[in-house]
């Protein structure tokens, strides 16, 4: 696969002045709670997420070789707080202030302690946690309120980015080659907020995502799946089934043609159709000249 890195001037690969090389690491994904691939820059200064473009029927020609795997890897900067957050939440359930290096610990992913070396980590912990200083030591405790405000800001900044990049947030699918008559401005602010919330939810747990939705004052959408009628057959009640319509009217005198006794519901509705001016079906098959009286 090919690796594309969309990196700023403090390049991941600028290892000269740093004491450790950039490395791919496996960390706990805050959304799925399972392992995902990330990258720590030189000297662990910056965190990067790794996303792969993957579509069927793609391969690479690289120089004089063929790469069967047509994947394209993107290594993009990421806020380490997203990965630290689940550990803080977990520790926060105990309600105590704790030193952060005791909070961010994981037997399954020991690498996670390196997240704290990132330049932004300690400096921005106050966005999601309350701080207490005792002497030279700092203690932290998760704060839901702070976190919500921090996430809200993230959503708002994402909205700005979505607008700037002209990303279609409506329900319809937009083609880049299709010229729209209506301008993009018809999107409601709520569409942008929902879309941005969805994107931020790629980095937080489901519980947090729901809480954020409330915090943004967006009502939860019911998925069409839930509104679907039950697919099981309706249970029969003990009562006798009664017809919903009075079919006896067809037998009354003012109904011109008496339908034969056994007719299906569809035939009955057809029989009710106004037939004036219509030819009978059989007229199409009879020899010419014999037109219907009607």
């Amino acid at each position: 696969m090919l690796v594309v890195s969309l990196l700023s001037s403090d390049s991941v690969l600028d290892a000269k002045k740093q004491d450790s090389d950039p490395a791919f690491v496996r960390l706990r994904n805050p959304t799925t709670d399972e392992a995902s691939l990330y990258m720590l820059g030189a000297g662990d200064a910056q965190m990067y997420e790794v996303k792969a473009f993957e579509e069927d029927f793609h391969s690479w020609f690289v120089g004089q070789t063929v790469q069967r795997d047509g994947r394209l890897l993107f290594v993009t900067p990421m806020d380490p707080l997203f990965l630290i957050l689940p550990y803080l939440i977990k520790a926060g359930k105990e309600g105590k202030f704790q030193p952060v290096d005791q909070i961010v610990m994981d037997e399954e992913f020991p690498v996670c302690s390196r997240l704290l070396s990132c330049t932004r980590s300690l400096a921005s912990l106050h966005h999601i946690a309350e701080e207490k200083e005792v002497g030279s030591l700092k203690f932290h405790r998760y704060s839901q309120e702070k976190t919500m405000n921090w996430l809200k800001k993230k959503v708002e900044r994402t909205v700005v980015a979505l607008k700037k990049k002209n990303i279609s947030v409506g329900e319809g699918v937009k083609s880049t080659t299709y010229i729209r008559v209506k301008s993009e401005s018809e999107y409601h602010e709520e569409d942008y907020l929902r879309y941005a919330h969805g994107l931020i939810s790629e980095y937080i747990s489901e519980d947090l995502s729901k809480a954020l939705l409330k915090h943004l004052q967006l009502p939860e959408l019911t998925s069409p799946k839930e509104t679907e009628p039950p697919s099981k057959k309706r249970k029969l009640s003990g009562n006798a089934v009664e017809a919903e319509e009075d079919y006896t009217k067809f037998n009354s005198a003012d109904f011109a043609r008496k339908p034969p006794k056994k007719m299906t519901a569809a035939q009955k509705t057809l029989a009710k159709v106004d037939k004036t001016g219509m030819k009978t079906m059989s007229s199409f098959f009879s020899p010419k000249g014999k037109t219907e009286k009607k």
Binding site: R26, N29, T31, T32, E34, A35, S36, L37, E49, V50, K51, A52, F53, E54, E55, L73, F74, I167, V173, Y195, G198, L199, S201, E202, E206, K225, S231
Partner: peptide
Amino acid sequence: AGGKDQNPSHQTHRFLTERRLKSLCT
């Protein structure tokens, strides 16, 4: 019907699925 995806609790956002972007674990 449905609900048999690999990860039922999480549905990847359409920004990513539309762009065929995936997280990796290795």
